[in-house]
Nucleic acid binder design. Structure first.
Lengths: 191, 191
DNA sequence: GTCTATAAATGGATAGAC
DNA sequence: GTCTATCCATTTATAGAC
């Protein structure tokens, strides 16, 4: 997902994120990870005693990734439209090669089975993302660059939900669904 | 999901749909169903020898539901806008009470683990739904009632993906997410 | 159609040696 | 940090009696 893993713990998290995006949280096991790393299940339990410990670590990894992404996008000082375009381009990298979805979407699918600590983390991550997109939309509207009705938070819902959903659909119907969705979203706001 | 179940087989399918919407396909077991019905697992296996047999039956139930819903909506002869509103109102019934999502969304989440027969069925169901919404959007645009750019198939993606995604978010962030999404979608097309 | 019984595999988890 | 060994519960699935 981002950096090269150095130690075992980071390797496990990186692999966990990959399984999360391809199979889902409840559909991967310590055995899957241990097989891939060539070590035993017990070794994984040494780093993450319970699966929910790994789950929390995955949430933290996503949070770190969000923070880096959003900080960088803000620092680039590009227009709101370009910033949104880059955000979507980065989402699109999930699709290349294997069929991956957003890790946050995957966690949402299993939400009814997750412990409260994970639930709270997911809720925060969702809000963080919506807030960032709403901020960009508002900035673009004030600059006369983007056009939409109502509150930017509600338009942010349309943008984020469509993009995340398109990643899911792309696994079944092909990558074109994602690019078509992005094109439609952006063209509708350019007026 | 719709009719009152008469025989065991229909009871199992009805319960299966409920578990599909609340826990996901890979996250419910024959034990869950048998406990709920007060019979043994072996009895469930009598009706559906393998879990994928039940999975196919669930897809067929969704297909039947789609067909009834779309036929009725077309038969009502209401305006495109009213038809879309009714479609979304019916999706909203998932949200009331317990936290359910669209059964098709649930199946999509587990797509990488499903047998080919289920994969093909899901693909067809998705396409059927997008086609119906695209048809309504096109009709509304021709009547001068709805306004959007580009092809109606692409706009249908925005509508369907946003609504399905909103159901997922509503489980975490509350029902308001869904009504806000619907409001934003419709107001953006009323111009 | 439903039951008991059972099989074989998998999943999460722990104890203790190296 | 990693291993062997083991535990217990669950899951899918089958055989055969009632």
């Amino acid at each position: 997902m981002h950096n090269r893993p150095k130690n075992r713990k980071q390797q496990i998290i990186a692999l966990g994120l990959d399984f999360l995006q391809t199979h889902g949280y409840e559909n991967f096991s310590y055995q899957d990870i241990s097989r891939e790393l060539g070590i035993t299940k017990a070794s994984i339990h040494h780093h993450f005693p319970k699966k929910c410990d790994l789950g929390i670590a995955l949430c933290e990894a996503i949070e770190e990734w969000h923070e880096n992404q959003f900080r960088e996008l803000r620092h680039n000082q590009t227009s709101a439209l370009e910033t949104l375009q880059t955000y979507m381009d980065q989402l699109a990298t999930y699709v290349v090669g294997e069929s991956r979805v957003c890790p946050l979407s995957s966690l949402q699918s299993d939400i009814t089975l997750l412990p409260d600590a994970m639930y709270q983390a997911i809720k925060r991550l969702d809000q963080h993302e919506i807030d960032f997109i709403a901020e960009q939309l508002e900035r673009g509207r004030e600059a006369g660059e983007l056009h939409f009705q109502g509150e930017s938070e509600n338009q942010a819902l349309i943008v984020v939900l469509s993009c995340k959903g398109a990643l899911q659909y792309a696994r079944i119907h092909g990558d074109k669904v994602f690019s078509d969705t992005v094109k439609q979203l952006l063209s509708s706001m350019k007026q």
